[in-house]
């Protein structure tokens, strides 16, 4: 294991995405929370980004110089909470 590997910082723990991967994605041009989400699945895990969204935003801010205000607020769609698949059908039965 190299030194950098050892010091790996996990940003999205649900989807196991590291800071290095996010910085790479930003360099490749994925500079919004949504773009990074599509590229790396950050924020698509069990917690629905509750843990990692602000952390991802901070990295984007650092790397691009954009403000946190501008970076936060990608469009979220229901569900706001992790819910069991199939629950949506509950109403019809």
């Amino acid at each position: 294991m190299t030194e950098t590997n050892k010091k790996e910082v996990i940003i999205c723990r649900c989807e196991d995405v590291s800071e290095v991967e996010i910085k790479q994605a930003i360099e490749e041009g994925f500079t919004t929370i949504n773009a990074i989400k599509k590229r790396l699945r950050t924020g698509m895990g069990l917690c629905q980004g509750r843990t990692c969204q602000k952390l991802v935003a901070r990295i984007i801010a650092q790397e691009t110089g954009k403000s946190m205000e501008e970076i936060l607020l990608p469009t979220t769609r229901p569900p706001v909470r992790p819910i069991i698949m199939g629950a949506f059908e509950g109403e019809d039965q």
């Binding site: 229901p78 569900p79 706001v80 909470r81 819910i83 069991i84 199939g86 629950a87 949506f88 059908e89 509950g90 109403e91």
Partner: peptide, 19 residues
């Protein structure tokens, strides 16, 4: 858990069922 909200409607998940 309220997982959806529009102007007046709430989508609530209770014991695996949506109300």
């Amino acid at each position: 858990t309220v997982f959806g909200l529009d102007k007046r409607n709430l989508w609530v998940l209770k014991e695996g069922k949506t109300e």
